[in-house]
């Protein structure tokens, strides 16, 4: 055990929590914590809006005989969703598989990198520009290159997904780990906590709300990239079906695929808002 904590050694005692900005650069914590729907009044209101939009759309399309290739009626889209589901299911699984595999790899690397780099300020400063470069460069653009190297299979897509989600997880987690609270570190240290104990019991819980936000944003970015790289090449995946149906102007089937993609996206959001409520509700 080090005799003195490096941070405590030279700092003037301080009882304020310091976070770079109150939250991170990619703060969407509002969407994680503040949407709470209570009671039949709110639920029925939301349902009413859906009925008005879908019903109105259906009515207008039938009234003016709008052909399917211009805009499909909601009923036609629903029918296509049900009838083509057996056909679409394998593609759904492939896109989901790309997303999960790429995300697990990318998010884990991002999280570990964030935890390690924030402990070594010099390394953090050296690595961060490259992470920003990865965030600002759409990794989709790399897919054709990856395909030349790895072939028209699932691997280029998995790599693209992890390159898209990993940096998102990392940059948000870094913001979380940079939250320091000298008094809380001093507290743990006064009981003789080791550097690892301070990390596990103080720094990590302090960072957790931002990590969860990062995992959510990373998941959504991963989904975008998975669907996008399906479009770029190959003959499988939901993205591929989107280009296929739109090229045939079969818009009802096209929208059916969009709904499948949206289901994945909404599931990601629900998953992490649940996780946030369970593990980071103390920030509210």
């Amino acid at each position: 055990m080090d005799a003195y904590d490096k941070q405590l050694e030279e700092e003037i005692p301080d009882f304020e929590e310091h976070a770079p900005g109150k939250h991170g650069a990619f703060d969407i914590s509002a969407t994680v914590s503040s949407v709470k729907i209570h009671g039949w009044k709110q639920v029925s209101g939301i349902l009413a809006v859906a009925i008005v939009i879908l019903g109105g759309l259906e009515l207008l399309i039938r009234l003016f005989h709008v052909p399917e290739f211009v805009f499909p009626a909601p009923s036609a889209t629903f029918k296509a969703l049900v009838t083509s589901f057996p056909n679409n299911y394998p593609h759904f699984l492939i896109t989901l598989g790309e997303l999960v595999a790429g995300y697990v790899v990318g998010a884990s690397i991002g999280l570990v990198l964030a935890a390690v780099l924030t402990q070594v300020p010099y390394l953090e400063k050296v690595i961060t520009p490259y992470i920003l470069l990865l965030i600002c460069t759409p990794t989709l653009a790399l897919v054709p290159l990856l395909m030349l190297k790895l072939g028209f299979n699932i691997w280029p897509r998995i790599i693209a997904v992890s390159l898209a989600s990993g940096p998102m997880v990392m940059i948000n987690s870094v913001t979380g780990f940079r939250r320091t609270d000298l008094a809380k570190i001093a507290l743990a240290k006064s009981y003789g906590a080791t550097t690892f104990q301070i990390f596990r019991k103080i720094r990590f819980p302090l960072a957790l709300p931002m990590i969860i936000v990062g995992l959510l944003v990373g998941g959504i970015f991963g989904l975008i990239t998975a669907v996008g790289s399906d479009m770029v090449g190959g003959k499988m995946g939901l993205g591929n079906k989107i280009s296929y149906y739109s090229s045939l102007a079969r818009m009802a089937h096209f929208f059916a695929i969009i709904i499948l993609v949206a289901i994945i996206g909404i599931s990601i959001w629900i998953l992490f808002s649940r996780v946030g409520k369970k593990w980071a509700s103390w920030t509210e």
Partner: peptide
């Protein structure tokens, strides 16, 4: 004194409780 010891307890300016 050169490191924290079990015989000493410190109570801080603020309660300094861990909110989680």
């Amino acid at each position: 004194v050169n490191k924290p010891r079990k015989e000493v307890g410190i109570i801080f300016q603020q309660s300094n409780l861990l909110p989680w």
